[in-house]
Nucleic acid binder design. Structure first.
Lengths: 142, 142
DNA sequence: CCTTTATTATTAGACATCTAACTATATGGC
DNA sequence: GCCATATAGTTAGATGTCTAATAATAAAGG
């Protein structure tokens, strides 16, 4: 019990993973996209449409943040906003054709990431570490 | 090998830990300080003085970022900047008395954080998870 | 020496993110 | 039916962070 640096490691891993994702996206010709945009797009890749609020919850960001993120994705032509008919406060977000076209790249990047992260980890180790991280994650929900 | 979400967990853990740190700092009456400021201060708590560049490396941030962070810490009166005599390009940063006074709070917060993160983890589990996270962290240094 | 190259730090500009405040709409109680 | 309250989304303002460019100084090579 001498080290006590799970948080520092988690932080460094998160940042390196984010940089890797951005680098890979650029390598696939996808520019100006940060991981949060990616998270949104991944959620939309099943073809469903979601409200701004739904997306905010899914990617663990606030609504104002999602407004900005989505506006950028609209500018890039990856998604469209659709006003709800039933409740005019609500805005749905849906992938465009161009957005749907990102799927192969996203799957490749995801596989590449997993190959790096889980390199030389046995299935047992992978399972164990996810279980423990899950526990720590819950512990932090004060 | 079904989950594959170490990165997502690391990301959530990092963010929750950061929020917890900020909340605890405020509870100790330390306001306007984010984890990066904390990282800098923790590094200075041994009484040594470090250059801007040193600090940037220690906290894994760029030099422009550290310039901004330090300027804020100077405004708050926690640190002072001292021009080097030997090399006039170099600026040293050192804790003030007020900065030194943060030590007890920082230690308390660190202990509280460890208590939460390592709650119901055996020593063996803690050791193992840090070893595996260390491995993943290195794997990401492409 | 003097010029080129390297190094330290800052400034400028961009962006994701947050909280707080605001708008607009819906819902629920009386 | 109206008014209070809740909910969805945006806008405004602040801040940490980055990259690129700049300034100032040091070191190195001819």
């Amino acid at each position: 019990m001498k080290h006590k640096n799970v948080i520092a490691l988690a932080s460094r891993i998160t940042e390196k993973a984010h940089r890797l994702i951005i680098r890979e996206l650029e390598a696939h010709g996808i520019d100006g996209i940060v991981p949060s945009h990616g998270d949104i797009l991944v959620n939309l890749l099943n073809g469903e449409k979601y409200t701004m609020k739904d997306l905010a919850e899914k990617i663990h960001r606030t609504k104002p943040t999602v407004t900005v993120l989505i506006d950028k994705l609209v500018d890039f032509g990856y998604v469209t906003k659709i006003k709800s008919n039933e409740d005019s406060r609500v805005t749905f977000v849906e992938l465009t054709e161009k957005g749907l076209g990102l799927k192969p790249s996203f799957m490749e990047i995801s596989e590449k990431m997993n190959a790096i992260v889980y390199k030389d980890l046995s299935d047992k180790e992978a399972e164990f570490i996810e279980a423990v991280l899950g526990k720590i994650n819950r512990n932090l929900d004060e």
